[in-house]
Design a protein around this nucleic acid. Structure first.
Lengths: 255, 255
DNA sequence: CAGTGGTCTAGACCACATC
DNA sequence: ATGTGGTCTAGACCACTGG
């Protein structure tokens, strides 16, 4: 097969290379660029391994190893016999619990009902600006949202988004969507959440939160702060949630 | 190379196999058995990929894929140019933080000082028996331990162990060891912790805990319950920790 | 049936560690 | 120089999906 334009971007490992980077890592980088550019939309199939091997003028095994890593990072999903697909938050699979660590105390999974309380526009303060890697005073959106499990208000969170990435987000538009919030961000604004860091603390309920969650004032709550990242480890969401552990807990696996 | 006894345990994929299991999975199973049996001790090297390929009469690539999975599960560690080694909790690497999710609020890692308060013998209650998959009333050991960060008492936990796996564990012997607790379990009792599940809740400090952690009575604390597993997903530790989030937090990555 | 990902092989060569 | 894990290739064949 003849060389393609894209193949020229690949350099074979040269001994004189100061810091060696394997071919499959370079392929992975090129694929990531094309994914990020939106060349293939979430849910769509990317070209077959054979096809990509031809495009990049490498063997199938090398493309395979590149895709393996993308799959292990949940950026892409492999389906035997069908193809490799751009991962999406829209699938109503249990994989939705990847970003929702709340479980019932009996260990069962349970879908909460989500109620968006309000959407406000504002300017970001210094702390959150640092978390989002933007300038203090930049325009932001603040969503407040309540999660109920079996009708019981359980989690109250405040979600801060950089306004420039979510132009046109309104309460009406949010309420019109179905499925997860990250699915909404993905299909409506092209922002894909790939990874997040959370910090969990114990706090006491302030009066307003106590009322919203129907707990006594001063009750202990989990305070979960999250920074979510998209391609290139760019932070695009800051979130602070306050959560009763009356009948649920924060679950985590150490491995 | 001639066939070995072990090679006979490997069956090539047969079409009539009801549920297909790839060769490398079978190899992985055999390696896991040999690891579990103690054929190679923690920290030791296992045979080279070429060697194992010969033993099992398969190609190096197939052994490689088996070892890849063991490495991704932290059961084994690869070191280019040196070999593949049985993973250990004894290494004073930062990888010790794999099972310790407490971070300073500024994000920095910090080694706490650990003080074992006491070791008691007792009988297990129904709840913890279920967690440890043993019978209620079975003999157990209970360790109580305090972690201090920069001198500040921060985490108080109570660790329940099945007595039959930790024969001869005493406070004196524990105090004599250096390094992490899981390293101690591994080298002294041959119990390797491979994986753990944690449940985090918010609670209020009882009087005794409040005094130990130097917080006001009724202060909010994190309650972290852990079940740790060894080979074959066998639970071998139950732990309940109470933790101030005065200057630290529970850190987690969602990916 | 054809097309896709998944497995397996055999062999070459590279990067790294040690002697 | 030797031995280890790491990369890459080319090709064969298997398992799964869908027309």
């Amino acid at each position: 097969m003849s060389d393609t334009v894209l193949a020229s971007a690949v350099s074979f490992p040269a001994p004189e290379t100061p810091s060696f980077q394997p071919l499959y890592q370079q392929i992975k980088g090129l694929l990531t660029q094309r994914l990020e550019s939106g060349e293939w939309r979430p849910g769509e199939a990317i070209p077959s391994e054979q096809d990509l091997a031809g495009q990049f003028s490498v063997s199938q095994g090398t493309v395979r190893k590149a895709i393996d890593e993308l799959a292990s990072e949940n950026i892409v999903v492999r389906r035997q016999g069908k193809g490799t697909f751009v991962a999406t938050h829209t699938e109503t699979k249990s994989s939705n619990f990847r970003f929702l660590r709340l479980r019932r105390n009996d260990g069962q999974y349970e879908y909460p009902a989500s109620e968006l309380l309000d959407v406000k526009r504002g300017r970001v303060n210094a702390d959150i600006a640092r978390s989002l890697d933007i300038k203090p005073g930049d325009a932001i959106l603040i969503l407040r949202r309540l999660l109920r499990y079996s009708g019981e208000p359980t989690l109250l969170d405040e979600i801060t988004l950089p306004a420039n990435l979510f132009k046109g987000l309104t309460k009406e538009r949010f309420d019109a969507h179905v499925g997860s919030m990250y699915g909404f961000f993905e299909t409506e604004f092209g922002v894909r959440m790939l990874r997040a860091e959370e910090q969990v603390k114990a706090v006491t309920a302030d009066p307003i939160t106590a009322e919203a969650l129907r707990v006594g004032m001063g009750s202990p709550l989990l305070c979960v702060e999250r920074i979510a990242y998209t391609y290139g480890d760019k932070p695009v969401e800051f979130r602070r949630g306050l959560c009763t552990t009356r009948s649920h807990h924060y679950a985590n696996t150490l491995s």
